[in-house]
Write a protein that binds this DNA or RNA. Structure first.
Length: 336
DNA sequence: TGACTAATAT
DNA sequence: CATATTAGTC
């Protein structure tokens, strides 16, 4: 049975999105235009995690066409002429406040990869501890906010409920596009059986959330740079109508991957969680991520250099529904 | 106060 | 419809 442990782990690793598919979220969130807007949202919401851009190195293994690299300045958009005066981008006018502060971030798009990470996190945490903040931390996806997770979690829960109800009936399959995303990731058994607790339960020997510390300053710098370059796109600009969708296609070890062999992770708290569904687990592994303001000390990860995220901005007409929506695609829209 | 969930808005 | 945002509660 011990093998099971390593087995599941191996399986888990395998299922994880390959580095090529993984990527740092925030980076994508922060498109040039957005760079300006990437700032945090409401002042009151401490926002456990703001977004922090990482700088990734290009892994030599990025066979992908080198063509799309770097930030295209998004000028691809038609509005390249936003730049003009730097002074007031603020709301035009009068009040000129801090636009960056009030900007809204683009809608997060839950790609299968992202969702997978989400499910993995939830599975490993156990429904009990699977609350937005924890999930978010475990996912360790740069740029993901607690609210993003909360929202998704809500929906996921509904989905699970639906599944439960359906499963007893018989089965038929549901293929509505609605579940498409959720279907992309297997739902851990316990999820469907809230009451059942596997005797041998306990997975997650020592899961280690790597990344998690990011530098806000860098982000600020980046923003500043972006701002300088593209002085403004005030919210009003985004406000209504389309932005460019950023597609990501870059490998990144985000931090989810485990360096098995190298396992330097020896995290101080590499404890095996207690039981996900049973006892209480020590969130120590969460490493108190005290808000932001951390000295950019990257962990000594073996080789956590991530490739630069070469994302391309694409205008996604998105839907033909009511009108253009601004959407940000994080991962390469690669369906599984 | 901060976080969670449910409800509602976009 | 998928997310985001708000509101009520703990």
């Amino acid at each position: 049975m011990r093998e099971d442990e390593s087995d599941w782990f191996a399986r888990w690793e395998e299922e994880l999105p390959s580095p090529e598919e993984l990527m740092p979220l925030s980076q994508s969130l922060i498109s040039p235009d957005l760079a300006l807007a990437f700032d945090i949202r409401s002042p009151s919401q401490g926002n456990g995690n703001s977004n922090q851009p990482h700088h990734h190195h290009q892994t030599t293994t990025t066979p992908t066409t080198p063509s799309q690299l770097q930030l295209p300045s998004s000028q691809a958009n038609s509005s390249a002429e936003f730049a003009a005066d730097s002074a007031d981008l603020g709301s035009g006018g009068a009040a000129g406040d801090e636009p960056a502060r009030t900007l809204k971030r683009p809608r997060l798009v839950w790609t299968p990869q992202l969702h997978k990470r989400f499910v993995d996190a939830v599975a490993h945490l156990g429904i009990k501890n699977a609350v937005p903040k924890t999930i978010m931390q475990l996912m360790s996806v740069d740029g993901l906010t607690r609210e993003n997770v909360a929202s998704h979690l809500q929906k996921y829960r509904l989905y699970l409920k639906r599944m439960q109800g359906l499963s007893s009936g018989g089965g038929a399959g549901s293929d509505p596009a609605t579940d498409r995303l959720f279907a992309s990731s297997p739902v851990p058994a316990h999820f469907l059986h809230p009451n059942r607790v596997p005797s041998s339960d306990h997975f997650m020997p020592s899961f280690v959330p790597i990344a998690t510390l990011q530098q806000q300053q860098q982000m600020a710098a980046a923003a500043a740079a972006a701002a300088a370059s593209n002085p403004h796109l005030q919210p009003a600009q985004f406000h209504h109508r389309q932005i460019a969708a950023a597609h990501f296609g870059s490998p990144t070890n985000g931090g989810f991957h485990s360096p098995t062999s190298n396992g330097q992770f020896g995290s101080p708290t590499s404890n095996g969680f207690g039981s996900p569904t049973n006892g209480k687990f020590d969130p120590s592994f969460l490493a108190r991520q005290t808000q932001q303001q951390q000295p950019i000390h990257r962990m000594s990860t073996p080789s956590l250099h991530s490739p630069v995220g070469n994302y391309v901005e694409d205008l996604e007409s998105a839907n033909a529904n009511g009108g253009g929506r601004t959407v940000l695609t994080l991962f390469p829209t690669r369906d599984d």
